[in-house]
Structures are given as C-alpha cells and as structure tokens.
Write a protein that binds this DNA or RNA. Structure first.
Lengths: 123, 123
DNA sequence: TCCAGTTACTTTCGAATCGAAAGCTACCAT
DNA sequence: ATGGTAGCTTTCGATTCGAAAGTAACTGGA
C-alpha cells in the first residue's frame, strides 16, 4: 500500500491510506479493545501474520497506532490507537449501516460500538 | 475482488465488497453525476480502463449501478446509480471528514456533496 | 537439563491482481 | 478514405497477496 496521494481529494486520499481489505478490519478490532498481535491475528477474519505485521508497521508510521513495550523479558509489545485512529470509528459505523441495510444476514453492530466504547470486559 | 464474505460482520462484509483503491472513487464520481465510461475514466485519479470495466461489471452485478443504453447506433451505454449505490454517500462523507481533519492540504468537500446533491450543472 | 509452549514477528514462494499500453468494434464526419 | 470518438478487451511484466513454515527470546514443567 502506498502513502502518496493520487489527488488532493479527501476521499481518494482516504482510500490511498485505508483502501484495502484488511486495514480497517484491524482498526475495528483495535476499537473493540484488542491490543496484541496474537489477539489481532486470531480475529474472526484471520488476518495473515505477514499482512498484519506490515499493516501494524504502517499504522505506527502514520501515527494511527503506537507500539508500546509491556514486558522487558521476554520482549513483548502491544499497540494502542491514537486519537487519529479512534477518529476512524464514524467511518466504520457508516459502513456498518450500509451493510445492515443492504446485505442479508449480517451481524447487528452492538450499541456499545456505535456509542464509542470498547467491548464489555475489554479495557 | 471477491464477493463472498469472510465473516457475518457488517464491516468486514462491506470491505469484502468495496475494500479496494478504486471502487469507491468510481462511486464518488457517479454520485457527483458522471454516468459514462469515458467521463469516469477521465477523472482526477485516472482509473485504468481495464479496472474500470471490471468494476462497472461488478457494480452492475451487485445492483449498485444499472447499465443503460442511451444510443442504438452507434451502441452506447451509461451507468446509473441505484438507491443501494446512492446509500454509499454517508460512507464517503465520513471518509472526507476524517481526511479533512487528519491530513494536510486536502480539498474541502463541497456542501452540495455533503447535502446529497450532484455537482452543479450535472443532472 | 530437556522439552513443549507462548508471543511477536519474518521469510518463502506460488498464485492472484494490478495497471500501462495497445488493440478492437462500431460507428460518424469530412 | 481518413480521422475521431466511445466503450470496452487483451496483453503482459510488475506488484501484492497469503498460506505455511521458520525464528528469537523467553517461561514453566518434568
């Protein structure tokens, strides 16, 4: 995924950054409260580890996530969404709305997600 | 792009359909009032014709656009967004909002777009 | 001490997709 | 006849994807 913009249009610029099949799924899981590589990897849609590693590097470089060491020995890291990352929630909600109204048999997005909270029991 | 869904999550299902770098740019241009292949091809971001043709086939199959013949001889077609397609506007607006708030020097999305209209002079 | 397990990745490599360019079909206009 | 336009399709090298296996740095148990 490239980070240079095809045009100054805010929509196309958004897609330059997040227009692929995995990145916003990772963001969704982080909004829900997942922080660790293994948690993100084990999600419903099974992101391949190679892609997950690439995306986390990107998210970090773009200032949407922060890589934080939570254990020295053994060295272990987790990722935290920044405000820039948390600000993506309305986009995901708009996507949910469209899917729930136009596709069959999708899960209903929980209210706590729409209202800006993590999953109950997460964080 | 596949159309089968990785999970019943409405967000991931949305991305199964629209999670690439071109499709929503095409939808943006159609929301703005563009209907013809050549108009869409000549947009700001220069979609390759091969990709545009694939996407228009998809959009048509998914019931988001309709292919309408507007001339018999020579045979000429244009595409019209269905309600399902028009319903994508809020997603694009949410993307615009994020970009305008978090990226530098993007165009400002015009009010007529936010308010659900075509470009002045279009349609 | 040896072995299995955990976490956070990286590497490999064939397959799928992308995209620039050129080509094609069916016209119309000069 | 020659050129132009519209709506595509084809070609093909380059990029990206993604399943699987491998690696580093440990911990905890037998």
């Amino acid at each position: 995924m490239k980070t240079d913009h095809r045009s100054p249009c805010p929509i196309s610029s958004f897609l330059d950054l997040w227009g692929d099949r995995w990145t916003l799924i990772i963001i969704r899981d982080m909004l829900v409260g997942k922080r660790r590589f293994s948690d993100l990897e084990a999600g419903n849609e099974r992101v391949p580890a190679s892609i997950l590693a690439n995306r986390m590097k990107q998210l970090t470089e773009l200032g949407v996530a922060k890589r934080v060491q939570y254990s020295e020995r053994p060295p272990r890291f987790e990722y935290h969404l920044t405000d820039k990352g948390k600000a993506l929630r309305p986009v995901l909600i708009a996507m949910s709305d469209w899917s729930e109204q136009n596709l069959d048999d999708r899960w209903h997005t929980p209210d706590w997600f729409r209202e800006g909270r993590s999953a109950p029991g997460r964080d």
